[in-house]
C-alpha cells in the first residue's frame, strides 16, 4: 500500500487523468450492457420496422421487393379489415380495462384490510398472473367449449343465450371470450399496483380522520382516492397501451375470427407478418397502431396536466 502511494508522485498527471476518466466512465460501464442490448434488439429493429412500412417486403412475393412510398398506407386506408380492427381494438381495450380496474381496486382494498389467512389468500388470488398467457387463452377456450366446458351451460341457464353453444364462434359475442380471459389474467396486476399504492398511504392520515369523525365513505373519498389518483392515471394509461398491444389471447382463442370479428390491430399485425409473411404491410399496421396509441397517451397527459392545474 505504501509503495502504491509513492508511485503517485512521479506519474501524478497520468494518475490524475485516469482517476477522473474512471470516475466519469464508471456509470456507463454499469448501464452499458443494457443499452447495447436494447439498442440492438429493440431500437434498431424499430427503425427498421418503420422503414419496412414504406417498402414492399412480402416473403411470398420475393420479386416485388422495393421502396413503394406510401402504398402500404394507401392500401391500409382502403382495408375494411383495418377499420373493423380499430373498432375491435377499442372494445377489447375498454372492456378489459374497465373490469380489470374495478375488480383490481376491489381486491386491493380487500387485501388492505386484515383477516385470517390473508397471506394464503393473496398468493392464491394473484395466481392467474403467473399462468402463462397462452395457457390462460387455451383454458378459457376450453371453458367456452360446450363439450368440456361449463360456461355455455351456465350462460344458457342464466338465459343469456338460447342453448349451450360456443360463443367464440358467434361473431356478435366472440370478443367477450378473450375479454373475459384477459380480465381474469389482468386483475392481479391492478390489485398489486393499487395495493402497493394503498400501503404507501400513511396510516396516521386514517387515524386522524377517524378522530375527526369521518365516515368510511368519507375516508375513502377524501383520503384514499386523492392519494391513489396520480398512480391510477399513470397505471391506467400504461395498461391501456399494454392491453391494446396484447395479441396472444386473441390469437390463441379465436385467431381473429370468426369473420374478422375479433381481429384487433395487434393481432392483425401478427397474422399479417406470420401467416402472410407480408412484412411491409404488417409494419404499416404497426405504425398506425403506434400513432393511435401515441395520440391517446398525449391526450391523456394533456388532460391530466389540465386537471392538475385547476
Amino acid at each position: 500500500m505504501r509503495s502504491a502511494r509513492k508511485n503517485v508522485v512521479p506519474g501524478a498527471d497520468r494518475a490524475r487523468r485516469s482517476f477522473y476518466l474512471r470516475y466519469l466512465l464508471e456509470p456507463y460501464l454499469y448501464v452499458g450492457p443494457a443499452l447495447v442490448l436494447i439498442g440492438a434488439v429493440i431500437l434498431f429493429p424499430l427503425i427498421l420496422g418503420i422503414s419496412y412500412s414504406f417498402q414492399s417486403i412480402a416473403l411470398l412475393k420475393p420479386f416485388e421487393t422495393g421502396w413503394v412510398g406510401f402504398e402500404n398506407y394507401a392500401a391500409l386506408w382502403q382495408d375494411d379489415k383495418f377499420w373493423t380492427a380499430i373498432g375491435n381494438t377499442a372494445l377489447w381495450t375498454c372492456g378489459s380495462l374497465f373490469f380489470q380496474f374495478f375488480l383490481g381496486l376491489g381486491l386491493a382494498l380487500l387485501l388492505n384490510t386484515s383477516f385470517r389467512g390473508k397471506r394464503l389468500f393473496q398468493a392464491l388470488v394473484f395466481l392467474p398472473w403467473a399462468v402463462p398467457t397462452f395457457l390462460t387463452a387455451l383454458t378459457f377456450a376450453w371453458l367456452f367449449n360446450p363439450v368440456i366446458g361449463p360456461f355455455p351451460h351456465w350462460l344458457a341457464g342464466l338465459g343469456l343465450i338460447d342453448e349451450p353453444y360456443n360463443i367464440l364462434g358467434d361473431p356478435d359475442l366472440a370478443m367477450w371470450g378473450p375479454i373475459l380471459a384477459n380480465i381474469w389474467f389482468g386483475v392481479p396486476f391492478f390489485a398489486i399496483t393499487l395495493l402497493a399504492a394503498l400501503q404507501s398511504i400513511p396510516s396516521e392520515l386514517y387515524e386522524a380522520a377517524e378522530i375527526d369523525g369521518a365516515s368510511d365513505w368519507q375516508r375513502f373519498s377524501k383520503i384514499t382516492l386523492p392519494f391513489l389518483a396520480p398512480m391510477i392515471v399513470i397505471t391506467v394509461m400504461l395498461r391501456t397501451i399494454w392491453i391494446a398491444n396484447f395479441a396472444d389471447m386473441i390469437y390463441v382463442m379465436t385467431g381473429g375470427g370468426p369473420a374478422g370479428s375479433t381481429e384487433i390491430l395487434s393481432s392483425y399485425v401478427f397474422t399479417t407478418a406470420f401467416r402472410k409473411l407480408d412484412f411491409g404491410y404488417a409494419s404499416a399496421i404497426a405504425v398506425a397502431l403506434l400513432l393511435i396509441l401515441l395520440a391517446y397517451a398525449l391526450i391523456l397527459l394533456v388532460v391530466r396536466q389540465k386537471l392538475v392545474r385547476t
Binding site: 419496412y52 398491444n245 407478418a273 404488417a282 409494419s283 404497426a286 405504425v287
Partner: peptide, 9 residues
C-alpha cells in the same frame, strides 16, 4: 410501444 412492431424486422 408495441413490441409486435418489431416482429418482422
Amino acid at each position: 410501444f408495441p413490441l409486435l412492431m418489431i416482429i418482422a424486422p
